[in-house]
């Protein structure tokens, strides 16, 4: 696969390490009320869509960027890739 790195252009998937669902970005506040339940959902509940999936890829053999890649799980088509640390984050 080729990942369209937003800074470096198309890069071979072998340069990346895969993590999983991009919702891992939305880590709950550990000091908040009900943090236990929030962390349970955060850690263990995942959608497994047949279709577009936002997921985390790390350019480990590259510039160390964490990317959010939108990939169609049924075709492997890459619909987009952005830095996890983008504007607005």
């Amino acid at each position: 696969m080729l990942i369209p790195h937003p800074l470096l252009g198309p890069r071979d998937a072998q340069e990346f390490t895969y993590l999983g669902d991009a919702r891992l970005i939305d880590r709950p506040d550990g000091m908040a009320e009900g943090a236990g339940a929030a962390f349970h959902d955060y850690l263990y509940l995942r959608d497994n869509p047949a279709g577009p999936h936002r997921e985390l890829w790390y350019h480990e053999h590259g510039d160390r960027s964490w990317l959010v890649v939108t990939r169609d799980t049924t075709t492997h088509e890459i619909l987009g890739a952005e830095l996890v640390k983008g504007p607005g984050r």
Binding site: L24, L56, W66, K85, R89
Partner: peptide
């Protein structure tokens, strides 16, 4: 050594940007 660095980068970029 590798995985900890990877996780710290994840925390830096994604969790605590």
């Amino acid at each position: 050594a590798g995985p900890v660095f990877r996780n710290m980068e994840f925390a830096r970029q994604a969790l605590f940007p």
